[in-house]
Amino acid sequence: MSLLKVRGLTKKFGGLVAVGDVSFDLARGEFLALIGPNGAGKTTCFNMIGGYLRPDRGSVRLEGRDIVGLPPRRIWRMGVGRTFQITETFRSMTVRENVQMALISHHRRSFDMVSAAAKLYVAEADALLADTGMEAHAGRPCSELAYGDLKRLELAIAMAHKPRLLLMDEPTAGMAPSERVALMALTAGIVAREGLSVIFTEHDMDVVFAHAHRILVLNRGRLIAEGTGDEIRADATVREVYLGGGAIRARDEADHA
């Protein structure tokens, strides 16, 4: 059975169809890339799966259970981790404390008003930081980190809950090319070891073709292609979208007429 089933996912903003009738399945342990030009609807798709945006139509089933309409925090509890396109961390805390917060939530101790937070789950937090190569930064204030390190920290935070599914929105945006490859290699290693599934959006095709098991291509809200790296590379429609949209646009308009 697949981990995630997305069926007929649709979202309109005013008259614009941001995401129209997108359906796909995600298998356990699969590393799935969602690509497409700017404005294709990748992030909107992500936000609907993660509970940040309510779809107009369609269903999202996680292991058979419909999660549409649940708030992000409930979806997180069901085992869906998330990293952000623009990193979101607790700026006034250290790197380790950021991970400890996720662990405190994981262990449901967020209403504890007596213990000293900084002393909780230190070993677990350090282990997660070691997994992402961040152990040397553990005691540093989060606000001092370089952007690439923040991305790795977000990965460590997401892993704290032992997710079954990880949603990564442009995990390498704003990073240097060498860092990108390193981060995705790291992620791929974790995915293989823990057996979790990942959906990620990405603009860097090198990253996509190097790591994704399967690729979905979105354009103007529609799913236009699906397949392995080689299949996508060979796909004529995808080439048109990336190398010159005139033909697509003309055909699209012909469809509408």
Binding site: E97, M101, S110, M113, V114, A117
Partner: peptide, 9 residues
Amino acid sequence: HSPFGYLLR
């Protein structure tokens, strides 16, 4: 200094 206070912050 507790988890609750950290969380509010």
